[in-house]
Computed example of a mutant assay.
Amino acid sequence: MATEHVLVETAAKIPINSSSPIISFTPVIIPSPGRPAELQLRVTAPSSGGALPIILLSHGHGPSYWLSSLQGYAPLAEFYAKHGFVVIQPTHLSSRTLGLQGPQGNEMYWRSRPEDMTQILDQLDLIETTVPGLKGRLDKTKVAGIGHSFGGFTMSLLLGATNTDPRDDTVFRPFEQRIKAGVLFGPTGNGGVDMSESGRGMLPFYGLDFSTMYTPTLTIGGEHDISPHLTVRGADWHWDPYTHGPGPKDLLRVKGGHHGFGGISGWDAKETQDESPEMLSMVQRVSLAYLRTKLYEGDKSWEQACEVLAGLEKLGCVESKSQ
């Protein structure tokens, strides 16, 4: 059986380490007194091996019934697990699967989403013992964070960005120093004057500032990812973590990319405007290379991926800055 889609095509030139069988276990339930719903997780991991690095994956807030929960993002979770990571996915309180209405001041449960991730990190011992065969196999010093869309907003906060609520100037910065590197797929950009009228209505709490986000981060932006419902700017609004965040930062500009990046949120998802096995494989491989290099000193995966991608101009290009 082929391990990749036949239409991966030229993205297959981007080197990756060998894959291995994986296991997926759900739900892992984290005790959460006072939370409107118990915190449930999916854990996807290699079936063998030790000293495994960890990815926390924050889902977006898209239109599908199931993808914005621990049920979604299989194309990412399974890929990273096949190549050596343990991927932990929570169902945030904003998920359509729960049907909850966030209270004023915590609309869309924007404050509780990063708190979910901190709680997961606090409970890694419990997670290890709950998932059969996982005990003693985690490297808890090597943690990365990934977020898509509104999950990118969540992860930006954990990576060090600051949100100032424009209604009362309340500052929120739940920086999580245990997360050593981040990948943001189509994240939300600057707040303030860059927001459209509908965006200010949808996200009345939104005032994100990336100047305090020092954690190494790869922003992945689609060149056709235009969001007038949120911003008066073009696709470059989604690149703001790179543009306005202090270095080291990297940007992967995806040619032809919309908000689905080839299909990261689910297999054959109708909401994916740019479904493409080739594009999906490219962002999978490049993001994997980035995380391996950022978590393992001396690893050359990112350098090698960038060298190959430079010859695959139809897929995308990388920009980097050190400061």
Score class of each variant (00 low, 15 high):
218 L>T: 02
206 Y>Q: 09
146 I>K: 08
173 R>F: 09
223 E>M: 12
133 G>K: 13
166 P>M: 04
153 F>T: 12
213 M>A: 14
131 V>Q: 15
185 F>D: 07
129 T>Y: 13
224 H>V: 11
131 V>F: 12
136 G>F: 11
132 P>M: 02
192 G>P: 05
189 G>K: 01
152 G>I: 11
188 T>S: 04
205 F>I: 02
211 S>F: 08
180 K>N: 08
216 P>H: 12
204 P>D: 02
161 A>N: 01
204 P>K: 08
132 P>I: 05
227 S>H: 10
227 S>I: 13
188 T>E: 05
177 Q>K: 14
197 E>S: 13
130 T>R: 13
212 T>M: 13
146 I>M: 11
179 I>Q: 09
155 M>Q: 09
135 K>D: 11
132 P>C: 03
197 E>V: 13
193 V>N: 10
134 L>A: 11
186 G>N: 06
205 F>C: 01
219 T>I: 09
140 K>Y: 04
131 V>L: 11
198 S>Q: 15
162 T>V: 14
208 L>N: 03
180 K>P: 05
144 A>Q: 00
147 G>Y: 07
203 L>G: 04
185 F>W: 10
168 D>R: 01
150 F>L: 14
148 H>E: 03
200 R>N: 09
189 G>T: 07
187 P>A: 05
187 P>R: 07
196 S>T: 11
167 R>F: 02
166 P>G: 06
157 L>C: 02
145 G>P: 07
209 D>Q: 10
178 R>I: 10
193 V>Q: 07
226 I>A: 12
191 G>F: 03
165 D>K: 05
141 T>F: 05
222 G>P: 10
135 K>F: 09
154 T>F: 02
181 A>P: 04
218 L>H: 03
195 M>Q: 10
155 M>S: 06
184 L>Q: 03
183 V>L: 06
217 T>D: 07
146 I>V: 15
221 G>D: 14
223 E>F: 12
128 E>K: 00
176 E>N: 12
192 G>V: 08
219 T>F: 09
163 N>I: 08
176 E>V: 15
173 R>H: 10
